[in-house]
């Protein structure tokens, strides 16, 4: 009966992305929920000629598509199912919220936290979600610590 409910994972090329995917896959197998992978293209912060702007947008789109492809392959290998994909242009947090509100089948968001204390600029999505938006969320957010091993993830799911 859980067949068309989705676990949302964000693909952002960060080192902790694999942990989030791993956990989502494990959950998916356990609960027969499907996975949706989302990636966001941030708007340009510079004004330059039209030609350059177009090239910048095209390159960003290509990269985002490659990233989705990579994450989708990972999920397919792990679970045998092809995940749903979402590619949105705009500011990450607001687009993320829009996606969750639009796709009513999404019922949990899985994020992984970077466990490297030296890397202060990581976890920007978690930080802004928790500090500003957490009361505006329609669904719960699961945060997987980045130092979990794959075996450990298998053990706890």
């Amino acid at each position: 009966m859980n067949d068309n409910r989705y676990i949302l994972v964000i693909a952002d090329n960060s080192p902790e992305m694999d942990i989030a995917l791993e956990y989502a896959c494990a959950r998916s197998k356990k609960t027969t929920r499907k996975i949706i992978i989302a990636t966001f293209i941030e708007p340009l912060d510079v004004l330059t000629t039209q030609g350059v702007t177009e090239i910048m947008k095209n390159e960003a789109r290509d990269e985002a598509e490659k990233l989705l492809q990579k994450a989708a392959n990972y999920v397919k290998e792990k679970t045998g199912e092809i995940p749903a994909l979402a590619l949105r242009e705009g500011e990450t947090i607001s687009e993320l919220k829009k996606l969750i509100d639009e796709e009513e089948n999404i019922n949990v968001l899985v994020l992984a936290a970077n466990s490297d204390p030296k890397n202060k600029d990581s976890n920007s999505i978690i930080n802004s979600l928790v500090s500003q938006e957490i009361t505006n969320m329609r669904i719960p957010v699961m945060i997987v610590p980045g130092n979990f091993s794959k075996d450990h993830i298998a053990l706890i799911t």
């Binding site: 510079v46 330059t48 000629t49 030609g51 350059v52 090239i55 910048m56 390159e59 960003a60």
Partner: peptide, 12 residues
């Protein structure tokens, strides 16, 4: 910026 993109072909 345009020179870097058009002439050098740098990743944007």
């Amino acid at each position: 910026i345009p020179a870097m993109v058009y002439l050098l072909g740098m990743s944007t």
